[in-house]
Computed example of a mutant assay.
Amino acid sequence: MKKQFGLLALIGVLFFSSCIYSLHPLYTKDTQVFEASLIGTWEKDEQSFIFKKVGKKDYYKLTHVDRKEDTVTDSEAHLVKLGNHYYLDFQRWTDYGDLFDFNVLAPRMDVHNFARVVWNNDQLELIFFDGDKIGKLLEQRRARIDYEKVGMEEFVLTAQPEELQEFVTKYGDELLDFSETLVLPKVLN
């Protein structure tokens, strides 16, 4: 049990150091777009990212399959266009059939995570934000955006979507971690 908890804590720290977490979404009605060219399977090594359209909605169900870790994770993904760049806003997939299956003693709170996305017919690139750079920017008070500090080093942005869009537009290039870009070729069926 201690091993499993330690592994979960390590995964949490890794995700916090390479992501931007927000209480609110990055998208608004006027910035959310849908591109059918994202639909399909993008794969590298032992990881697959499968984008599917959700009914008549203008967003995606993203299934991440990690064969090495033997995990499958579903997320809701919204494509956002800000200026000349596209971003994906990820949030845990909610199965509305399980809405009443929650733990009162340890409730879960959903947050949003953002990444810049670049794609064509052959390849998808996910460029994540650098959590350390964001933390320094906030601690130095260079950016005026609402946030809460969680624990000793983690931050959760609490600003409304319009403020988040301004923040990402202004500081996006500075805060992205291009060294950790995930490049995924498209699987042709």
Rank of each mutant, 00 (worst) to 15 (best):
P107G: 06
G40W: 02
L176P: 01
L38C: 01
I134E: 06
I11A: 11
W119G: 00
E76N: 14
L182H: 09
Y87W: 05
V118M: 09
D89F: 01
T169K: 11
Y147M: 10
L164I: 05
Y96K: 15
S75D: 12
Q4S: 14
G83A: 01
D122I: 09
E148H: 14
L176S: 05
K68A: 14
A106D: 13
K186S: 07
H112F: 07
L137V: 04
R67H: 15
N189W: 09
R144N: 13
K133A: 06
K29N: 05
H64Y: 15
Q91R: 07
V72K: 07
K44Y: 13
L14M: 10
Q91V: 06
S17N: 12
D146V: 06
I145F: 00
R92G: 10
A159G: 03
L157A: 01
F49D: 08
W119E: 01
F129G: 04
L62H: 04
G172T: 01
K68H: 13
F178L: 10
K53S: 04
D130C: 06
L138W: 05
Y87I: 04
V111P: 05
N103G: 08
S18E: 11
F155T: 09
Y87S: 06
K186D: 05
Y59L: 08
V118C: 07
C19P: 00
Y171M: 00
V150A: 15
I11M: 12
R141L: 06
P161F: 04
R141Q: 06
K133E: 05
Q47K: 14
D45G: 05
L7W: 12
L137W: 05
A106K: 12
T73A: 15
T181E: 00
L126I: 03
L38F: 02
F114I: 00
I39D: 07
K68R: 14
D95Q: 09
D66M: 06
F114R: 02
D110H: 10
H64C: 11
D110N: 13
K136D: 13
C19F: 08
F102L: 11
W42V: 03
L7H: 08
H112D: 02
G97T: 15
L137M: 00
F49M: 12
V187C: 10
T63Q: 15
I20P: 04
G83H: 00
I39L: 11
T31K: 03
L88W: 00
G12M: 10
L88R: 03
L124P: 07
D110L: 11
S75M: 13
K2T: 15
Y96E: 14
A77T: 06
T94S: 14
Y86C: 02
L79G: 03
K170M: 08
T181F: 02
N121D: 12
E174T: 03
V80T: 01
E35V: 08
V183W: 04
A143Y: 04
V117A: 02
Y86K: 06
K3R: 14
E46A: 12
F90W: 04
K56P: 14
L126Y: 03
G83P: 03
F128K: 01
K81G: 07
F51T: 01
